[in-house]
Structures are given as C-alpha cells and as structure tokens.
C-alpha cells in the first residue's frame, strides 16, 4: 500500500544572513509515522522544523503540508493548516500568566464551538494523558521543567491534530518520564494514526519510537530512511552517531 505523504520539502534552502543553514533539503514524511530529525548540534534541525511551519521564510525551495504549497497560502488558509497540527516547543512556551487549564483551553475555545462541559472534559483528559491531573489549576511558574513540557504537549494535542511537531521533547526529562512520553507518542500514532515529527538527540527514545530518520549534517541531508537502514547506511557520520550512543 502506498503511503500518504503529509509533508514534503523540495530543495529547501534556509539562510541566516549570508550563512546557509539548510542546503537543498528534499525530504518526505508520511502519515501515521514517527519521523525523527537527527544530527549534531547546529546542523539545522530546528531550522528545518521552523521552515516547514513557516515560522521562518525559506530562502528558496518548496514546503508542502497536506499536499499544499505553504508559500502559496494566505494567512487564513495557512491557519487552517495550523489547526490540523500541534507543536511542542523546546521549553514548553506556555503562557505564563494563566493556569495550565486555561493554556490547554485556548485552542479549544478559539477554534471550536464545543460546549463548556465537553471542553472541560477534553482539557482534563489531555492533562490526564500527560500525567498532570494534580497540576490543572497551577500556573506555569509553579511547574518543573518536565511538567511544563507535558502541559505544553496537552495544549498541542487539544485540537486532535493530524501532525504533531516536537522540538527536543526529551531534553531535560528523566528517563522514566521520557519513556512515558514515548509510550504516549506510540499510542497517538497507533490509535489516532497521528503523524509525528520529532527533533531529538536521545538515542534510547529514537530506538523506541522512530519509523523514519532524517539525518542532517552541516545543513545538508545525509540520509533519509528507516532506522535499520540508517544503521547500515555506510555513511560514516550516521553510523558514528548510532555507534557512539549505543550501550
């Protein structure tokens, strides 16, 4: 069965000033898969993520999400795409002045016309999914780093997105919380056929969840394929990455 492409970049070039950060990246990501974007620090992983989501304007090349070229879309059209996606930022990016409950309620209140009791139930279920039952009415400043990240994930999942982007979800989390998060990611993928795009360095996590690897090195795409293929790719940088991290 042919897999459905949900994100596609073609010859994507991104620059900071004169410095080329992404150099002709062409990748495809598929529905219902966990795609992990890998590479050494500063290789352009987060830049790729932000270019896909139009947070940065690509210098040249094309980005398609759900088969639509995002550079052709006006703000309203692109917002419709954003409503079908969720993003978990590196530090959570929760709104600090309001409670965790209110943070999760923002997308539901703004983008749906669901009644209050259903919204309330959805919010509490999402927070339960990320083990934050006890922190519903706390403000972000009262949460630890890991809790903030989990609350932000609940917010990202509020609108039942088809694609969720994660920017280093395991950074700063203990191995148990990180494994729980991976379990949740697998559940979301299996039960909801959700597509997940994850920037991470954590090899343990990559082994647990990755279906597809996108390996960047100094702004260039070195490898794209499945995890077993990556390990036998014969590309020194890719093999070294998995070798050094294995134990």
């Amino acid at each position: 069965m042919k897999k459905e492409i949900i994100i596609k970049t073609t010859n994507l070039v991104a620059k900071y000033g004169d410095k080329i950060v992404l150099d002709g990246i062409s990748v495809e990501m598929y529905k219902g898969e966990v795609t992990v974007i890998l590479g050494t620090s500063g290789c352009g992983k987060t830049t790729l993520l932000k270019n896909i989501l139009r947070m940065y304007q690509p210098y040249s090349g094309k980005v398609e999400i759900f088969g639509k070229d995002v550079s052709d879309l006006d703000e309203d059209q692109f917002n419709e795409i954003l409503k079908r996606t969720g993003m978990l930022f590196q530090n959570g990016a929760l709104l600090n002045s309001i409670t965790v409950y209110d943070n999760v309620s923002i997308p539901l209140e703004q983008h749906t016309d669901l009644p209050r009791d259903i919204i309330d139930r959805i919010i509490k279920t999402k927070l339960h999914l990320v083990n934050l039952d006890h922190a519903v009415y706390l403000t972000p400043s009262e949460l630890s780093g890991g809790m903030k990240k989990r609350a932000a994930l609940a917010r990202a999942l509020a609108l039942e997105p088809e694609i969720v982007f994660f920017d280093e979800p395991s950074a700063g989390l203990d191995p148990i919380t990180s494994a729980d998060l991976d379990k949740l990611i697998i559940n979301l993928k299996n039960q909801l056929n959700m597509s997940l795009v994850i920037v991470t360095h954590e090899l343990a996590s990559i082994h647990r969840i990755a279906d597809r690897i996108v390996f960047l090195h100094k702004g260039k795409l070195l490898f794209t394929g499945t995890l077993p293929e990556a390990k036998k790719s014969g590309i020194p940088q890719v093999e070294e990455f998995f070798e050094i991290g294995s134990f």
Partner: peptide, 12 residues
C-alpha cells in the same frame, strides 16, 4: 486511552 474515568479530580 482517552477516557476521563481515571482522572483524579482536583478542585479549582
């Protein structure tokens, strides 16, 4: 998975 049955209710 998505049931709210196991939620420990926290009073506002």
């Amino acid at each position: 998975i998505f049931s709210s049955a196991k939620i420990q209710t926290t009073e506002k």
